[in-house]
Amino acid sequence: MPRHTPPRPVDIEQLFPELVPLRRTTTRLHPRPGAPEVDESSVGGPLRWPSNEPWPHCTDRHYGPANGPRSPGGSALVPVIQIYRHDAPKLSFPDGTDLLQVLWCPFEHDECEPTPQVFWRAAASVETVIDPPPAPTDAEPRYVPQPCVVHPEPFTEYPRNDLPLGLLHALRDRFDQLEAESGVTYWGDLSTAEGTKLGGYPCWTQEPDWPDCPTCDDPMEHLLTVASWEYSGEAWRTWLPMEDRTLVDGQETRGDAGKAALDAAGLMLGDAGGVYIFECRTCPDRPTDHRFDCS
C-alpha cells in the first residue's frame, strides 16, 4: 500500500518565498515489516549480491553488547538498505548503475555507532546471487535491521538545522507569528522530513556536521538517513502517513501495526538518533562518509 505524507497545513513558499532556493527533494522510504525479495528495494532485506564477489566483513576493532573490546575478527556486515533506481528516480546514481546497497557492522566502534559501507552496481550484471552470512550471534540487536518492504515517496522539504543563520534571523518573527496564529511551527511541521530517507536534508538532532570530501575538499551531499524512528513525539501529526493515521492515539501506538509505523526495522541508534551517509558526486569514485547524532 502506498504511503503519503499529509499535505502541509499552509503554503510554505507563499508565506516564506525566501525558502524557495533552499527546497530539496527527499524520498521517504516508509519501511514496514515484510518479506522483500532480492529484486526489490528494502530495508534490512536480502541483497542482490553477486556470488563471485566476497561478502564484506568488518576488520576494525569494535565492541560487543557488554561493551567489552573485541579484536578485529572479520565480522560479517549486515544489510541495511537496498534501493533500485526505479524506486528513487530523484536520486543521482553513478553512470552505469541502477542499484544502491548499504551495509554496516552491527557492533559499536570508537565513534559508538555502526560503520556503514556503500556499494553501487548494475543490477543486470548480477547473474547469480550469494546467500548472505547470518548476522554475528553476539551482534547488537538494535543495529540489525529487521526485513522491511519500502513505500518510496518523493517529498519536498526545507532546511531545519541547516537554515542559514542570516535567513533564520530574517524569518524568525514570521515563524513566531505563524505559530501564534495557527499553532503550526516551521521547525516541526514545515521543514525537514523525519525518518529513513534518501537525499534532501539530514534531520539533525544536534548541530549540522557536514563532511568535506577527502579528495577534493568540497562539501559532500546527503545520500541517506537511517533513522531509529519514523517520527518523534508529537511530530506524528506531521510525518505519520495518512494511510496510518488510525494506528496512533496521541503519541501512543496501537498494537503491532502502530509500532511498525514508528520503528518497523527495530533499530535504536543511540538515543533514538540516526546515521547520516554522505557522498561526493564530483569525484569519479564517489567517496562517502557518515555522521551520527542523537538526542
Results as ranks from 00 to 15, higher is better:
residue 9 P to T: 03
residue 11 D to R: 08
residue 20 V to Q: 15
residue 23 R to E: 08
residue 26 T to P: 04
residue 27 T to Q: 04
residue 27 T to A: 05
residue 42 S to W: 02
residue 46 P to V: 09
residue 49 W to Q: 05
residue 51 S to N: 15
residue 55 W to K: 10
residue 65 P to Q: 10
residue 65 P to E: 11
residue 67 N to M: 13
residue 70 R to H: 05
residue 78 V to F: 11
residue 83 I to P: 01
residue 88 A to K: 02
residue 93 F to S: 02
residue 97 T to A: 13
residue 101 Q to I: 12
residue 103 L to V: 11
residue 119 F to S: 07
residue 127 E to P: 04
residue 129 V to H: 07
residue 147 P to Q: 14
residue 148 C to F: 03
residue 152 P to H: 04
residue 153 E to F: 02
residue 160 R to Q: 12
residue 162 D to P: 11
residue 166 G to Q: 08
residue 170 A to C: 08
residue 178 L to Q: 00
residue 178 L to P: 00
residue 190 L to G: 00
residue 194 E to P: 01
residue 200 G to R: 00
residue 210 W to S: 06
residue 212 D to M: 04
residue 223 L to Q: 02
residue 224 L to A: 06
residue 224 L to N: 01
residue 224 L to K: 01
residue 227 A to S: 14
residue 232 S to V: 15
residue 233 G to S: 09
residue 236 W to A: 04
residue 237 R to L: 13
residue 241 P to M: 04
residue 245 R to A: 10
residue 250 G to M: 11
residue 250 G to H: 12
residue 257 A to C: 03
residue 258 G to D: 08
residue 259 K to T: 09
residue 260 A to S: 07
residue 264 A to K: 01
residue 271 D to M: 13
residue 278 F to S: 05
residue 280 C to P: 03
residue 288 T to H: 13
residue 292 F to A: 03
residue 295 S to V: 06
